[in-house]
Design a protein around this nucleic acid. Structure first.
Lengths: 222, 222
DNA sequence: TGAAATTTTTCCGATAGGGCAAACTCACCG
DNA sequence: CGGTGAGTTTGCCCTATCGGAAAAATTTCA
C-alpha cells in the first residue's frame, strides 16, 4: 500500500500509535455491543446506558463516538466510506466508471469472510425491521456515494456542481449494490450469488435498464 | 374524483370533512413555522417549543405530527410520496418505465408555481447546509422510491423480493431527480432549465450512462 | 521522568419522546 | 336542536438523550 506523492486530504492516520488503536477498539467495542444487544433484545429495548455498560465506557463516551444508538448499531463491522476510494481509482485506469464500480464492489464482496457475510445478513434483517436503522444505513450509503462521486468528477474532469454525470454514475453504483443486497438477503444464497447479482445490477445500468421480457402495458423498448 | 370499484388500500381520505381540513392546516402550519424559523435563525437555534408557539399548538401536539424538528422543516411544502403513484401508473400505459418516470417528474416541475420553485430552492440550500436535514430528505426520497418500486413491480409483473429490476428503475428515477435538483440549485436558472435537466438525467439512464466525451484515463465505452 | 496533548469521565442543565387521561371539537342521529 | 361517540388537542410527567465544562486519567515525546 504505497503512498504516492501527495494526498488531497492530509490523511488523518499519521501513525497507528497506541492512542489511535485504543480509540478504534473503543469504537468497535461500542458498535459491537450495540449490534449484539439489538439482536438480542430489539432496538427499542436497548439504551445508550446499557450499551455503554457492556462496552465498559461511560455514557458520555458513547456520545463522543456516536450520535445515536442507531448509528452505533449500523456502524458495527461497516466499512469507512473512504475505503473504496483508492480501489475505485485504480479500477478506473482499467475500465469506464460503471464497470470499474462493478469490479470494485464484486471484489469487495468476494473478499469478505464467511463471518462477515453472516454479519451482513444479520444487519440486513435488522435494517429491514427497524426504519430508523434504515435511515442511518441509507445515510452511510450516501456517504459512500459522495466519495465515489468525487472520484468520478475528478476522473472525467467534470464538475459535480454543473454536471450531472458524476451524480448519476455514483448513485447508479450504490443503487446497484443496494438492490443486489436486498435481493440476496431475502434468499438464502451464498457469496457467489451476491457477486453475480452485483454484476447483473451494474450491467443493467450499463445497458440502459432494458425493460424485462414480457412486461405489462407499456410501449416498446427503453 | 370518482372512486372506482375497489382500492387496495382503503384510501384514508374518506371525506374531506372539517376535521381532516383542520388537521392538514395544523400540519402545514407547524411545518411552515419550522421552515421559516430555520431560515431566520438557523436550525440549531430552533426548538420544538418555539415552533409550537408560532404555530399556536402545544409542544405535545407537535409531537403528534412530527417526530423531530428536522422532519417538520423538510415536510414544509413537500409532496406526499403517494402523490406520484397514480400519475406514474398512467404514464406507464404510454411508455416504458424510465420514460414514464421522465414524464411524471418533468410534468411535476413544469406544474410548480414560481413560489413553489422558490421554496424548493430555499429548501435545497437548507438541506445542503444541515446534514441532519439531508438525512431526513433522503429518507423522504426513499419513500418515493419505494412507492415507485411497487408500481414498477406490479406493472412488469416482477417480484421485488427476487428481481432487482424494480429496485434499479425506481432508484434511477429518484437519483435522476436528485441530480437534476442539485445541479439546478447551484445555478440561478429557471423552471425550463430544471425540466431540461430532469429529461437529460433520465435519458442518460436510458442510454446506459455513456462516458462523457474527453474522459480521463479509462478504456473505451460503457 | 515530567510536561504537554489527548481522551475519558463526572456533573448536570436543556430538550426531546411519548404514555396516559382529561378537555375539547366535529360528525351524525334521532 | 341537543345528545353522543369518534377523533384531536392538551397538560402532566417520567425517562432518555444531547452536549458543555472542567477534573481525572492516559499516552506521547523530549
Amino acid at each position: 500500500m504505497t503512498m504516492s506523492a501527495e494526498e488531497t486530504t492530509p490523511n488523518d492516520s499519521p501513525a497507528p500509535g497506541l492512542r489511535e488503536l485504543k480509540k478504534q477498539m473503543t469504537r468497535d467495542g461500542i458498535a459491537a455491543a450495540a449490534f449484539q444487544l439489538t439482536l438480542e433484545k430489539g432496538l427499542d429495548h436497548v439504551t445508550i446506558e446499557e450499551i455503554s455498560r457492556i462496552a465498559i465506557v461511560s455514557p458520555r463516551t458513547f456520545s463522543n463516538y456516536f450520535s445515536s444508538k442507531e448509528e452505533a448499531v449500523v456502524s458495527a463491522g461497516a466499512q469507512e466510506p473512504e475505503q473504496f476510494v483508492p480501489t475505485f481509482r485504480e479500477a478506473l485506469q482499467e475500465a469506464p466508471p460503471l464497470q470499474a464500480l462493478r469490479e470494485v464492489f464484486s471484489d469487495f464482496f468476494m473478499n469478505r469472510t464467511d463471518e462477515q457475510l453472516d454479519h451482513i445478513r444479520e444487519m440486513l434483517a435488522l435494517v429491514e425491521q427497524y426504519p430508523s436503522l434504515l435511515d442511518v444505513q441509507t445515510a452511510r450509503f450516501g456517504n459512500i456515494e459522495a466519495e465515489l462521486r468525487a472520484v468520478v468528477a475528478e476522473h472525467t474532469g467534470t464538475d459535480a456542481e454543473t454536471d450531472m454525470y458524476p451524480w448519476l454514475v455514483a448513485s447508479a453504483g450504490v443503487a446497484g449494490i443496494k438492490a443486489a443486497l436486498r435481493v440476496w438477503g431475502s434468499a438464502d444464497d451464498g457469496r457467489d450469488r451476491l457477486v453475480k447479482l452485483v454484476h447483473e445490477a451494474l450491467n443493467l445500468f450499463s445497458e440502459g435498464l432494458p425493460v424485462p421480457a414480457g412486461a405489462g402495458g407499456g410501449a416498446g423498448r427503453a
